[in-house]
Simulated scan of single mutants.
Amino acid sequence: MASTPSLRLSPASGSFSFQPKQIKLRDQRVALGIEIPNDPAHTSSSSNGLFAVVRTGSSTGISPLPVSTSHAEVWLSGSKVYIRDLDSPFGTFVNGAKITTATLLRQGDILSLGSPVQRNSQTPAYITDDHLKPIIAKVVLAIGLSGW
């Protein structure tokens, strides 16, 4: 019996902090982006494509500025997994190359939602270095279909 195909995303070097994700890929496209605080329909979990706002000691949380709430989408087509950028301001990258069309994801690829934002004299003091980091993840495709 074949298991449901899934995409595992684990933090890679230089990434905004996030808990690993195991996203089941069924018949629909899965959005990747930042959760929307206080919106139950857009809350992060370990099994969806939304990344949590990191809570700190203050009442506000930290989210990565280079990542949009609806940044990219992934989907299964046959036995292959694809990703597409959703016109995000800071782009989507696979193995360091910015993608502009549907792109095949492969075992071990490095996926980046956004690119690092450089601090400058106009950056407000409350913006931390963590705010400036993109989501960078190692891709693991779960073997559940022949041909993977």
Rank of each mutant, 00 (worst) to 15 (best):
residue 40 P to K: 00
residue 82 Y to C: 07
residue 53 V to H: 11
residue 102 A to M: 09
residue 116 P to A: 09
residue 108 G to D: 10
residue 37 P to W: 03
residue 39 D to S: 08
residue 12 A to E: 05
residue 64 P to K: 14
residue 101 T to R: 14
residue 139 V to S: 02
residue 140 V to M: 12
residue 42 H to Q: 11
residue 29 R to T: 08
residue 43 T to Y: 07
residue 61 G to M: 06
residue 62 I to A: 04
residue 76 L to Y: 01
residue 19 Q to I: 15
residue 123 T to G: 08
residue 108 G to H: 08
residue 66 P to I: 06
residue 73 E to T: 09
residue 138 K to L: 07
residue 51 F to V: 04
residue 126 Y to D: 13
residue 38 N to L: 06
residue 147 G to K: 14
residue 1 M to F: 12
residue 30 V to H: 04
residue 71 H to D: 03
residue 42 H to L: 10
residue 131 H to F: 02
residue 2 A to S: 08
residue 101 T to D: 11
residue 86 L to D: 03
residue 102 A to H: 10
residue 9 L to V: 05
residue 139 V to G: 02
residue 25 L to V: 03
residue 80 K to H: 12
residue 56 T to D: 11
residue 43 T to H: 08
residue 64 P to T: 14
residue 68 S to A: 14
residue 12 A to K: 00
residue 88 S to Q: 11
residue 48 N to H: 04
residue 14 G to K: 13
residue 103 T to R: 04
residue 48 N to E: 04
residue 25 L to D: 03
residue 42 H to A: 10
residue 145 L to P: 00
residue 131 H to P: 03
residue 105 L to Y: 13
residue 79 S to K: 06
residue 69 T to S: 13
residue 23 I to Y: 00
residue 140 V to Y: 09
residue 138 K to I: 07
residue 121 S to D: 14
residue 148 W to P: 00
residue 126 Y to K: 11
residue 95 N to M: 07
residue 92 T to L: 06
residue 10 S to W: 06
residue 72 A to Q: 02
residue 110 I to L: 14
residue 78 G to C: 08
residue 107 Q to W: 10
residue 87 D to H: 15
residue 126 Y to P: 03
residue 97 A to F: 06
residue 95 N to D: 12
residue 52 A to E: 14
residue 81 V to M: 07
residue 42 H to Y: 05
residue 119 R to N: 06
residue 98 K to A: 06
residue 99 I to G: 00
residue 143 I to E: 11
residue 144 G to L: 14
residue 112 S to N: 00
residue 107 Q to M: 13
residue 114 G to T: 09
residue 127 I to K: 05
residue 147 G to H: 13
residue 83 I to H: 02
residue 65 L to Y: 09
residue 10 S to Y: 11
residue 87 D to Y: 11
residue 56 T to V: 15
residue 50 L to N: 00
residue 62 I to S: 03
residue 138 K to M: 08
residue 75 W to F: 08
residue 109 D to H: 12
residue 1 M to A: 15
residue 98 K to G: 03
residue 104 L to C: 13
residue 43 T to G: 01
residue 96 G to Y: 09
residue 8 R to V: 15
residue 88 S to Y: 12
residue 95 N to V: 02
residue 9 L to C: 01
residue 45 S to C: 06
residue 142 A to L: 15
residue 93 F to R: 00
residue 66 P to G: 06
residue 17 S to I: 09
residue 17 S to N: 12
residue 141 L to Y: 04
residue 35 E to S: 03
residue 112 S to V: 01
residue 140 V to I: 13
residue 49 G to C: 03
residue 80 K to W: 07
residue 28 Q to K: 09
residue 29 R to D: 06
residue 45 S to H: 02
residue 85 D to S: 08
residue 86 L to E: 04
residue 79 S to M: 01
residue 59 S to V: 13
residue 41 A to H: 09
residue 14 G to W: 10
residue 41 A to V: 09
residue 119 R to A: 11
residue 73 E to H: 05
residue 1 M to L: 15
residue 96 G to L: 13
residue 20 P to G: 04
